[in-house]
């Protein structure tokens, strides 16, 4: 005995869609934006330069931070306005400036920047050790929230798919510190041994 074929094997649309009346009764606002041509992002491009609030054809150029400001080589010029959150500095700054020799289309650009991010972080951690406010991995990772906000109960028996990789997070945070400490201890032992000879 043959059964009724499923939807894609015949021409008709699925039959289990509720009627508009039923949906309107159940869902507040159902169909308020029914007309695809009457939605805020239709059409995608609407030419209306007068409607943005801008009272310039080209904005006045920001002066602060302009000198030496890095930019993508896919830009024809430095943009008139830009952020000044964390100007290039130190070793990480030199690495970043090197990365900006490559276009956004090159993996080298992004991978070198990620490398510079790590150098920046390690440098900041080391500098903090000789500052009045050294980095505190306990407070800065917010891990104390585990105790106050039901860390175990939030995971146990919940069939969460992220539990299988969350154990890697402490390794990512603490791993470089463990390696650096081990390296420092090893170096100190070598120096001490040589000094005894």
């Amino acid at each position: 005995m043959s059964t009724t074929p499923s939807t894609p094997y015949v021409a008709n649309k699925p039959k289990d869609i509720p009627s508009p009346e039923a949906l309107r009764a159940r869902i507040p606002g159902w169909g308020a934006d029914l007309d695809p041509k009457d939605r805020p992002s239709y059409p995608r491009e609407v030419y209306d330069p007068a409607g943005t609030g801008a009272h310039w054809d080209y904005p006045e150029e920001q002066q602060s931070g302009r000198e030496g400001r890095e930019r993508s080589i896919e830009h024809g010029q430095l943009t008139p306005v830009f952020g000044t959150s964390a100007p290039l500095h130190g070793v990480s700054g030199r690495i970043r400036r090197y990365a900006y020799r490559y276009s956004e289309g090159r993996a080298a650009h992004w991978l070198i920047l990620i490398g510079a991010d790590r150098v920046d972080a390690w440098g900041a951690h080391l500098r903090s050790l000789v500052s009045l406010r050294p980095d505190n991995p306990v407070t800065e990772t917010g891990v104390l929230a585990e105790g106050r906000l039901h860390g175990i109960a939030s995971r146990l028996g919940k069939r969460r798919a992220d539990v299988n990789h969350q154990w890697l997070d402490p390794v990512i945070v603490g791993g470089p510190w463990v390696v650096a400490t081990a390296g420092a201890v090893l170096a100190a032992r070598v120096v001490r041994r040589r000094a005894r000879r």
Binding site: R44, E45, V46, Y47, D48, P49, T52, G53, A54, W56, D57, Y58, P59, R69, E70, R71, S72, E74, H75, L78, T79, P80, V81, F82, G83, Y100, E104
Partner: peptide, 26 residues
């Protein structure tokens, strides 16, 4: 962050403004 006057802002693509991000064009 958008300028309201570049090629893209003039066409309503405010998230694609070309006048505010020197670090990337994408």
């Amino acid at each position: 962050v958008y300028c309201g006057s570049c090629y893209f802002c003039a066409r309503g693509l405010y998230s694609n403004c070309h006048n505010v991000n020197p670090n990337a064009t994408a």
